[in-house]
Computed example of a mutant assay.
Amino acid sequence: MRKITAGLFISLDGVIEDPQDWHFPYFNEEMGQAVDAQLGSADTLLLGRKTYDSFAGAWPDREQAGGDDAGFAKKLGDARKIVVSRQDLTFTWRNSEQLRGDLIEAVTALKNEPSASAIGMSGSVSVVRVLLEAGLLDELHLFVHPIAVRKGTRLFEDADTSLPLELVSSATFATGVVHLVYRRDDAAPTGDYDTAKASLPAD
């Protein structure tokens, strides 16, 4: 079964909206390599419409311009891009198509396709939330920036139940950004204060 990985730039206070307004000062070679490993190596991209529109409005021109980011832009252009939207869409960026049918059923079918490559996601927070809740998202890559944005959409919305996650790996970049990789934890620990107090210092 194919793995789905999602990457998100996020602030200390959980904001994921408009990262272009606050994350570029923290982008360095370490982050570039991590983003390339998570997204640039995928042969299939699964994107929400807003993220797709943002990408399609920028990356084809960057590929054509032939600048420093042209190589990464070509990777995105060459990848199969599947867009989640309830609206009828028209595409100008090559290798783009619209996801049809029920999201959960369609993504399950994608995961069952014969391919060794992961399916990459970037942004697309509404889709990430649904897939994480459904247990279809295998890795959640959070690039936690050392800044409190203090306004904007946050990754997790209020809900009646919690969503335990397991930390798979972590790395700290020179800029202070922490790259955390999580997956759903279906065997999360349980306990209460009586359990926790046993770990307090005795003196």
Results as ranks from 00 to 15, higher is better:
Lys81Ser: 11
Phe143Trp: 15
Asp13Gln: 02
Gly14Glu: 06
Tyr26Val: 04
Ser41Ile: 08
Pro146Tyr: 07
Ala37Gln: 10
Val84Trp: 02
Asp160Leu: 06
His179Ala: 10
Ala6Gln: 00
Lys111Thr: 01
Arg100Pro: 06
Lys197Ile: 09
Ala187Pro: 08
Val83Arg: 00
Thr175Ala: 05
Lys111Phe: 01
Thr108Ser: 05
Pro19Ile: 12
Val149Ala: 03
Ala106Ile: 04
Ala65Ser: 06
Asp185Ser: 07
Ala34Gly: 10
Arg154Thr: 14
Gln64Phe: 11
Gly57Lys: 11
Arg94Val: 14
Asp138Trp: 01
Met121Ile: 15
Leu136Lys: 03
Lys50Tyr: 08
Tyr52Leu: 03
Asp69Val: 10
Ile16Arg: 00
Leu46Val: 07
Glu105His: 08
Lys151Trp: 09
Met121Val: 11
Gly14Val: 10
Thr90Pro: 00
Ile4Val: 14
Gly67Asp: 01
Ala70Thr: 14
Leu180His: 02
Lys81Trp: 00
Ala198His: 10
Met31Asp: 12
Lys151Phe: 06
Gln33Glu: 13
Val84Ala: 02
Lys151His: 02
Pro19Trp: 06
Val177Pro: 05
Ala187Gly: 13
Lys81Gly: 13
Tyr52Thr: 09
Leu8Phe: 00
Ala148Arg: 05
Gly101Asn: 07
Thr153Gly: 02
Lys111Pro: 03
Arg86His: 13
Phe72Thr: 08
Ala42Trp: 04
Tyr193Ala: 13
Ser199Phe: 13
Gly152Leu: 05
